[in-house]
């Protein structure tokens, strides 16, 4: 009787284990499924264009000639602009939030975190109706004419409020809360004695942050940057409205272009045949980009988790 009871319990335990583990495997299965489906559906595109697809700049729906380079390079450019702004901004903001008195730091960090709660479509809308006009009337004229940056290559003298810089700014704002949150963790995890030793030798608080804390938490900080990178890479709605949406290589900061995600969003619903396969291929490229970025981020952050585990 007792034996039987035990067996039943064991059976239930086993069922529990199998069920939960099956569920645990789902993300892995999904990731593999993503790769298979995207790969399978993009086969036609790669058969048609070969790997020249990756470096071709053509985008001609009439003649059905497509290349991925404008979208890929546009994605990289917006991401780089976003990180170029968000990473240092996140670092110094985290510095302030960690050192400021609690009554000030708490509401400010909550407000900053709320940036992550705003849906991306709202960023896109705000970018289109609010930021783009401001960019056109104030910021871009200031940068191009007043500072004379228009003469510098990569900026461009023509501006209309849209383009890579605007998209990059919005993206920077979107990824800032994520970067800042991880950096705040990194700062808080710096051992007290190390901080005291640095102050003890006569450092200013900036010197402590830039020479000691930055070095000590370098991996965590890089991980934070990569998390932001992953987010910026695939963001769709915030970029879609302000990037301009033309399949051309990026030629200037103020110029228009496109990203992989924006290309997908703009064309997918109407596409069929070869174009759809091309879009799947772009999706596959985006997936691989994101995968590699995540892999690097994990590599860097795992070390931090381990350190946290020791505490």
């Amino acid at each position: 009787m007792f034996e039987l009871f035990r067996k039943k319990e064991n059976l239930r335990d086993r069922a529990f284990m199998i069920l939960t583990l099956l569920c645990a495997f789902l993300p892995l299965a999904a990731a593999i499924g993503f790769l298979i489906l995207l790969g399978g559906n993009s086969a036609e595109a790669f058969r048609t264009f070969g790997f020249g697809f990756l470096v071709s700049t053509q985008w001609d729906p009439v003649q059905e000639l497509y290349g991925a380079l404008p979208a890929i390079s546009g994605t990289l450019v917006t991401t780089l602009i976003a990180l170029g702004i968000a990473a240092p901004l996140g670092f110094i903001s985290a510095l302030f939030l960690v050192n400021a008195p609690e009554w000030l730091a708490y509401p400010l960090s909550q407000a900053l975190d709320l940036l992550a709660a705003i849906p991306s479509i709202i960023y896109g809308m705000w970018g289109l109706f609010v930021l783009a006009p401001v960019m056109q009337e104030c910021i871009q004229p200031f940068l191009a004419d007043t500072l004379g940056l228009g003469k510098v290559p990569f900026f461009g003298e023509d501006y209309n409020g849209f383009g890579f810089l605007t998209a990059g700014l919005i993206l920077a704002l979107m990824v800032l809360p994520y970067i800042c949150a991880v950096m705040r963790d990194v700062f808080r995890m710096t051992p007290g004695p190390l901080r005291e030793a640095a102050y003890g030798i006569g450092c200013t608080s900036w010197e402590v942050a830039s020479d000691i804390v930055l070095r000590h938490g370098l991996r965590g900080i890089l991980g934070a940057v990569f998390i932001g990178l992953g987010r910026a890479l695939g963001e769709t709605m915030a970029v879609l409205f302000v990037i301009g949406g033309i399949a051309e290589l990026p030629h200037s900061l103020f110029g228009s272009g496109t990203t992989i995600a924006a290309t997908l969003a703009n064309n997918f619903n109407e596409a069929d045949g070869l174009l759809r396969s091309v879009l799947f291929a772009l999706g596959l490229i985006l997936m691989l980009l994101s995968l590699s970025v995540q892999a690097v981020a994990q590599l860097y952050l795992r070390n931090m988790d381990r350190k946290r585990g020791e505490k």
Binding site: P27, A31, R231, G234, E235, G283, L286, S290, L291
Partner: peptide, 9 residues
Amino acid sequence: VMMGLPSIL
């Protein structure tokens, strides 16, 4: 990885 995957995918 799935957490960081672009949502459009």
